Computed example of a mutant assay.
Amino acid sequence: MSTLYRLLTEEDTSAFCHKVSDALAKGWVLHGSPCYTHDPTSGLLRCAQAVTKDVDAAYSPDMKLGAQ
């Protein structure tokens, strides 16, 4: 068994909420609180949320984490 980790990022729009909601629906679990930062190049607020998931497979860097 392996615990997988992903950091989901997106601009502060509904797309970010949908990305996190999709991960939760696929069995990923929130890890910590969301983070926000201002991107001075684009002038937009960016969001990040860490998620984890336990899987019955050995970890490999070749894994497509979003497909787990």
Rank of each mutant, 00 (worst) to 15 (best):
M1A: 08
T3D: 02
T3K: 12
L4E: 08
Y5S: 04
L7P: 09
L7A: 10
L7R: 14
E10K: 00
E10T: 04
S14I: 04
S14D: 04
A15G: 11
F16Q: 10
C17I: 08
V20C: 01
V20N: 01
V20P: 09
S21E: 00
A23P: 15
A23L: 06
A23D: 09
L24F: 02
L24I: 11
A25Y: 08
A25P: 09
K26E: 12
G27T: 09
W28L: 05
G32Y: 08
S33M: 09
S33K: 03
P34G: 02
C35P: 03
T37W: 08
T37G: 06
H38A: 04
D39P: 04
S42T: 01
L44S: 02
C47I: 02
C47R: 05
A48T: 13
A48C: 05
Q49F: 08
V51F: 10
A58F: 00
Y59C: 02
Y59L: 02
Y59R: 00
S60P: 07
P61C: 04
D62I: 02
D62N: 12
M63W: 15
M63A: 04
M63Y: 13
K64L: 09
K64F: 11
G66H: 15
A67S: 12
A67I: 07
A67L: 12
Q68H: 15
Q68Y: 15
